[in-house]
Design a protein around this nucleic acid. Structure first.
Length: 954
RNA sequence: GGGGCAGUGGCGAAAUGGCAAACGCAGCAGUCUUAAAAACUGCGGAGGAAACUCUUGUGGGUUCGACUCCCACCUGCCCUACCA
């Protein structure tokens, strides 16, 4: 009857409390508002350089200014904040900044739809989101806030562009690019998604357009980007990036046409060169015109025209059926001087390799399909061992496996295995020979292409280039930055940047010759802004540099970065590239100088500017909560496939359906969809029926009486991503209003495995509510009243053990991002406190204070309140993290598990320090063991001391 | 087609090769209440009256011992896709 005791104490304590009367029930909103204000006043979470303490830069991906924070924003941020707080209490000087990714298409689209200026829309959203973020109780240092659409920010985005341009990392070229006809802008390759190649933003199928566009030379870093040895990133992200970079090792080989024009090809299978029976060029290949013979002219022109017109969907819709035409030209295979025809086909892409291939139909699926379709010769040059000799005329498919080289002159008999590149003896031997004879050379090819950064939109950072008829493209001088976006602008999307129709922006003078010139009117991809924001946070107040070297020298690099996996091949690849490019442009030189002044060694400096973020962890996604729809019986009449209802009744079971009366029909089913005037129901035999509800229809919904209408009908929600249209969005403001920020934070951490996520459960949050209420009550109850002279040493030791076990558990789990088990450990500790018997006030206070400190990173408000109610000095968040004492955590006695032949048969309680001999003797004495032994000697006895386990083999 | 990840109670989950299901939700029974809610107490994988037996997607293997390691398969999710 512990609660009785607690209650008594609670009363006693209340009378002795010295402060003003305090609410005895936990009201989250009061507690949170009070401390939020106090912390802000005291600037509790300002992060300042302090060389006496180790730094820790924790970062979570900045939100886009969409206008409303949803629970999906809290999910990465709140646990990341808890972990940053945890590091702070461990003695680190922690920087945990926040800002906004504020440029981009949605602002402009919203502006077009609602006639609000993107700037107005964006800053209103920033304001709203700042307010929401502040309720979270995070240790964001708002003095370091950075907003990417501020001129003070994008000045430096433009400056980076100029630095990259100076260093040959930015260039302009005419190229065929993906263009979204709905958003009216070009897209980077990775912004085109799915099998149908649609725009990531709006789902419109992209088209190809030839435009003069700016690119960043990310391909220069392809090899370095594949090196993950200095960073601790999830394998999954690594795999995705590796896949995206797509390194393949092979050989470049030059074939000559009959006119001696060289055609370079890339192949990963130089060992099959002798089997090349034709060549294929991409339709866009520059040599196509010259190669085409007069006879083939018409056919080739028609094919190229058709290929250009075909959308990506048309191509895939054809089911990969090969198409192509012969140019009429021939090339000479350099390894055997054979004359082979040159074709063009759209299965060869101009954008990969050299845009030309040697076709080896015997050993490549695609070439095989092409050769069979157009009756081209197939010559096997790899013979699988222990198989019938391959026959080019009869083989049913290409052989891409291992074997021995045949029909390949001096290489006949060379083994070929399934390995790629130089690990394959056949490839290795042939490549060496090609190099010796200057026919070809070893080569690496990447799938990665340069990063297209031009966007034909207004709401982005203008590209700081001026075009002069005499001087060509001229960079805007640094002292003229930023190139400001004009506010007065027409937004109708035309496929050209709106800036082009703004004469005041467009027309300028050439910085070199002073003549009249025009500005570049494209703006930069917003991924450019978010590629360097981690550096702007260091000193957003600095208008003379992108970041302050003193700040960078102290805080860099980012120690932990958290965010969604969806950015694996975009943001996370770009920002790695950006840091490497900055390093090579000398942008960190001042920072390095400061580090040297501060006594940093070369070894310490060496790796710091190679990668932006050392540790990366991805959280999962919170999905919508599933729910059953109402089961309804609708009466009315059929009109074709539709049902017109005059009455809708919610029933409990299908069987409760009322009988049809006076000629009207009745349909019964679960509501799966609802609009303003119709319901879609699924009948018990799983057919969907659409019900049009008459405007004056009657509703019978339990609990709503006569006032019920169609809005009260619940429709089924499956587990799906949250979206407004699905109606399954969880609004964090509402959750916070109902339960408080602490509960919301803790639930985010407890509900799922953080990296996995899962469907929202509106019931599950109650567990967290009860936990915090229990903690609240425990603190107010105070230490139990112990009778004079009673020995509390055993109870004290037990509580102290639980305390230190909790310290260990929470410390380890927080460190490993295992937030759900950290909270579970704290709940267990709370349960132990509830069950603690008569402990001394000293032991109770140690336990309760430790509990509050361990909880404080997770639930910062309630712990601060309880800490102060205990009379402890402000602030709990400035306390040091407790240190685990293994001696205190050790058990007095342990339960020894006894296995016989691998199965648990008995458990005996033994003293903790028991020796193996004693344990064995105790085990053998067990009647259960005796029973299984049947008087025989065990064959083997295994004692696992640290697992408290004895295994006997009979 | 290629690559990757994951499958444990009704649900979210936990378990350095060593007691499967900690912690929590829902559920059931009870206390309190006129009643309900809340709160509290107990039960809580399946079968069985019980002793006990079975159980981590399926089938093998390694081991005294496998949710955990290895092989094959099934299912789901993610990435990628005519990439030479």
């Amino acid at each position: 009857m512990r609660f009785f005791v607690v209650f008594l104490n609670f009363e006693q304590r209340e009378m002795t409390m010295t402060d003003q009367p305090k609410t005895m029930t936990y009201v989250a909103s009061e507690v949170e508002a009070k401390w939020r204000e106090k912390w802000e006043q005291d600037d509790l979470y300002r992060s300042k350089i302090d060389h006496s303490r180790p730094k820790y830069y924790a970062l979570t991906m900045l939100p886009y200014t969409s206008g409303d924070l949803h629970i999906g924003h809290w999910y990465p941020m709140a646990p990341s904040d808890a972990r940053a707080r945890f590091m702070r209490m461990q003695g680190y000087n922690v920087l945990f900044p926040m800002g906004f990714d504020a440029f981009g298409l949605p602002a402009e689209n919203a502006a077009i739809q609602r006639r609000i200026h993107p700037k107005t829309w964006t800053y209103a959203n920033v304001k709203r989101m700042e307010g929401q973020l502040k309720t979270m109780g995070a240790i964001f240092d708002w003095s370091r806030e950075a907003i990417s659409c501020d001129p003070e920010y994008y000045k430096w985005t433009q400056w980076f562009f100029l630095k990259f341009y100076e260093n040959g990392l930015a260039y302009k070229k005419m190229s065929s690019v993906d263009f979204c006809p709905n958003c009216n802008t070009t897209l980077a390759r990775e912004q085109v998604v799915g099998e149908n190649r649609v725009c990531e933003r709006c789902g419109t199928p992209v088209i190809k357009k030839d435009l003069d566009q700016w690119f960043f030379r990310i391909t220069k870093y392809a090899e370095e980007l594949l090196d993950y040895s200095k960073i601790d990133w999830p394998e999954r992200v690594r795999f995705m990036q590796e896949n995206w970079i797509g390194r393949s090792e092979g050989a470049y080989v030059t074939f000559l046409t009959e006119d001696e024009d060289p055609i370079e090809i890339f192949t990963t299978r130089p060992d099959t060169l002798w089997g090349a029976t034709f060549m294929v060029l991409a339709p866009e290949h520059p040599l196509v015109q010259k190669l085409t013979t007069p006879v083939q002219q018409n056919e080739v022109a028609a094919y190229i025209e058709a290929a250009g017109r075909k959308s990506e969907i048309d191509r895939t819709a054809e089911g990969k059926e090969k198409t192509g035409v012969w140019t009429g030209g021939y090339a000479i295979n350099p390894v055997n001087q054979k004359r082979i025809p040159i074709w063009i086909a759209d299965y060869v892409l101009m954008t990969y390799g050299t845009g030309a291939i040697m076709a080896v139909p015997a050993h490549d699926e695609r070439d095989f399909a092409f050769a069979r379709k157009f009756n081209l010769p197939i010559i096997p040059v790899i013979q699988p061992e222990e198989a019938e000799p391959l026959n080019g005329d009869t083989m049913p498919e290409a052989w891409s496996g291992a074997g021995v080289m045949v029909n390949s002159d001096r290489f006949n008999g060379t083994p070929v295995n399934e390995e790629k590149g130089s690990k394959n003896p056949g490839i290795k031997a042939v490549t060496g020979w090609l190099e010796e004879n200057k026919i070809g050379k070893l080569g690496i090819n990447y799938r990665l292409r340069d990063w297209l950064i031009s966007r034909q939109r207004y709401w982005g950072a203008p590209i700081p280039i001026i075009y002069c008829d005499d001087c060509g493209p001229v960079p805007v001088p640094e002292n003229e930055l930023p190139v400001l976006l004009p506010d007065d602008i027409e937004f109708m999307p035309t496929g050209e940047s709106p800036l082009r129709s703004h004469p005041g922006f467009l027309n300028t003078t050439c910085p070199k010759c002073g003549g009249s010139a025009k500005r570049e009117t494209d703006t930069m991809d917003t991924f450019m802004c978010s590629s360097w924001y981690q550096y702007r946070y260091l000193s957003p107040w600095n208008n003379d540099a992108a970041f302050t070297p003193e700040e960078a020298a102290y805080w860099l690099p980012v120690d932990t970065y958290t965010g969604g996996i969806e950015h694996a091949t975009m943001h996370l690849l770009y920002t790695r590239y950006f840091t490497k490019a900055m390093r090579d442009c000398g942008i960190f030189d001042d920072t390095i100088a400061v580090m040297r002044q501060n006594g940093a060694t070369d070894a310490e400096i060496e790796h710091i500017f190679n990668e932006p973020m050392i540790v990366l962890r991805n959280q999962g996604i919170i999905l919508g909560e599933p729910r059953d729809g109402h089961i309804v019986a609708a009466s009315g009449r059929y009109d074709g496939h539709k049902f017109i209802a005059s009455d809708v009744t919610v029933i409990n079971l299908f069987e409760d359906s009322p009988a049809a009366n006076n000629g009207s029909a009745v349909v019964v089913g679960e509501v799966v969809k609802r609009t303003n005037n119709s319901l879609t129901i699924e009948t018990p035999d799983h057919h969907d029926v659409i019900i049009d509800v008459e405007p004056d229809a009657t509703f019978d919904i339990a609990g709503y009486g006569a006032g019920g209408g169609i809005e009260q009908i619940k429709y089924r929600l499956d587990v799906e991503k949250m979206s407004k249209s699905k109606g399954n969005v969880v609004n964090p403001d509402q959750i916070v209003a109902q339960y408080g920020a602490d509960t919301t934070r803790a639930y985010m951490m407890f509900a799922f495995r953080w990296e996995k996520g899962g469907p929202w459960d509106s019931q599950g949050i109650k567990g967290v509510v009860r936990w915090l209420e229990d903690v609240w009550n425990i603190v107010h109850a105070g230490p139990p009243a112990v009778a004079a002279g009673e020995d509390t040493s055993k109870a004290d030791r037990d509580l102290r053990r639980k305390t230190h076990q909790a310290i260990k558990r929470v410390t380890d789990d927080m460190g490993e991002f295992s937030f759900n088990t950290a909270v579970a450990g704290l709940m267990e500790f709370k349960n132990a406190m509830l069950r603690a018997g008569n402990v001394s006030p000293v032991a109770w206070h140690e336990a309760v204070q430790t509990m509050l400190i361990l909880m404080s990173p997770i639930t910062p408000f309630i712990t601060e309140e309880l800490w102060s109610r205990l009379g402890q000095p402000y602030s709990i968040h400035n306390q040091l993290w407790p240190v685990y004492d293994s001696a205190a955590a050790v058990e007095d006695e342990i339960e020894l598990v006894i296995q016989v032949n691998g199965k648990v048969r008995d458990r005996i309680v033994v003293p903790a320090g028991v020796s193996e001999q004693e344990a064995t003797a105790l085990t053998m004495a067990s009647p259960v063991v005796q029973k299984y032994l049947e008087g025989k000697q065990p064959r083997k006895v295994i004692y696992v001391a640290d697992r408290k386990m004895m295994s006997i083999v009979i």
